[in-house]
Design a protein around this nucleic acid. Sequence first.
DNA 1: ATGAAAGCGCTAACAC
DNA 2: GTGTTAGCGCTTTCAT
Lengths: 340, 340
Amino acid sequence: MTPARRTPTLEDVAREAGVSRATASRVVNGQENVDAGLRLRVIDAIASIGYVPNAAAAALVSRRTGTVALVMSGSDGSAGQAFADPFFGRIIGGVVTCLRDRSMRATVQLADSAKARNDALDLVRRGGADGALLVSTHANDPLPRMFLEAGVPAVLFARPSPRLPISYVDLAHDQGAALAADRLAARGCRTVATIAGPAELPAAIDRLTGFEHAMEAHGVPYVHVARGNFTAESGERAMTALLAAAPDLDGVFAANDLMAVGALRALQLAGRSVPDDVALIGFDDSQPAQLTSPRLTTISQPLEAMAARMTEMLLERLADPAKPPEPQIFRPVLVERESA
Amino acid sequence: MTPARRTPTLEDVAREAGVSRATASRVVNGQENVDAGLRLRVIDAIASIGYVPNAAAAALVSRRTGTVALVMSGSDGSAGQAFADPFFGRIIGGVVTCLRDRSMRATVQLADSAKARNDALDLVRRGGADGALLVSTHANDPLPRMFLEAGVPAVLFARPSPRLPISYVDLAHDQGAALAADRLAARGCRTVATIAGPAELPAAIDRLTGFEHAMEAHGVPYVHVARGNFTAESGERAMTALLAAAPDLDGVFAANDLMAVGALRALQLAGRSVPDDVALIGFDDSQPAQLTSPRLTTISQPLEAMAARMTEMLLERLADPAKPPEPQIFRPVLVERESA
DNA sequence: ATGAAAGCGCTAACAC
DNA sequence: GTGTTAGCGCTTTCAT
């Protein structure tokens, strides 16, 4: 008859295999310096008694959990809604995929309030995660500085504003905007406008100034500017205003695809043909960009690759705490479709 | 001068406050039965020496981690790509939001290969998570049965197929389809078609049969059927085929919004006006549904609420392991816009 | 290459 | 209400 069973421990494995707990541990953790014969016996013992290592015990002594905190920093109160945005989803995908190659995992935190930010930081301080990945796109987000000051290993997605001595990955947003400007200029557009994003997003600012500078380089000293908030509605409104201000417009760069979709609608309502009367370029290469007619020419960013690199940088930092902070900037690419 | 500091432990707190470690522990864990005066002294001590609890040590003895594994089960090789789909994002949002109210968190796993499935299961068995949330939408996914047989607490998103004695949340997909049928019937549509989703998704099957049955109830015995794979392109192709087979079509139900968007395009290309010539209804209430012209009438599902409920059910199961498995079905709602 | 032994920091009985 | 105590299961020097 079956004895009342506790769940088997390393001790049991060791006894069963006739080795010490230390050796059993070495085998479990895949260390090389173990006699092949013993290793085999340990492996058999593990299988025969159905041993499963205890993660908490390992973490307690090794001070490593194999877990990384992935902190999504939103404006206060943005709540769970944010996750519906593929931007976050793609980053999660990149992070999770990178981690699992190393047998690690991510725990997702939402930092949209002072309490939530503290909880996220606490998680790492309590040893619930080995380090943190902070997706923080807003200027003056307190989160990066909190982690920095607490001495908690962290890498950011997006350059902190104001700047901080901390590693981050980011896109060359200005280059993306320049790609759009180049395209418009190449089509011969001379009266151009841009629908900019919220001023509190450094990325939006970079896209705006990047566009202006690049058009300037193409001999176009003035660009009409309207602001939106990254929604289609705001893009439509902005485009309507732009059309009123500059009826002879022949090229438009929207700081994201959603606003470009709205702009497209306004343009079509106004009887302008895209791209013949007005060329239009978006940013992000999101799904909506592929669903409009004409389909949107846009700027794509390698979010998954950026997320994976961010993860690697954290792992490097964990392996060598002395590693100095480092930025890593990715290049956007122009996706040519029908709207420009 | 400052002594060489270890990181402070509960022991240090206890000494500083002049109480036992047990009392200090009670205060840290917010237990009620502690003298108010002592509690204050402990709190002061914590602040003054900068104590931070160690999660691994707590987990080791309490056998609780406060972490739940959120396992995204995709078809093999679907990789990180899947996360770009707002479907997953919304679920993650619902889960994370629900958990954080209880000071818990989720770790995201991708189960798209035999190894990944084993890793996910192992995570819980090693005590890396207290239980699992399995988002498994494909028929014959081995994942749910694996967790069930391992005796690991788990709750599913979507009814397992074949059925299993395990708790799950799901949408009444057939009711959603019926909502679409009712709408079409109310508009007087008599020659209707549906663009169905992949046959390996139980949800897609339910939407198809639900639609057929409801139209039948409205006195329409036959529904034209074409299959798509949930992409806009497949929807466009399906619609083109449907138009060829039944040129007098006056109503179409697509099993998701993306296919509806494709169908809309095909319809417009064929010179049919939507909704005047042909009424069109989608499913999901996704972003693209709001960006087309006309905007899509569609069926929405409360994914965040479903995810939150799934999470609660797991927590209930954790609190009472004897709790019998239970399904929880949510109602879809018709979102009236312009296409039908 | 292997084993002995010393904790890692905490919770939960249990006794008072 | 408070303290004492016995581990939780593992990794990791340190000898050998």
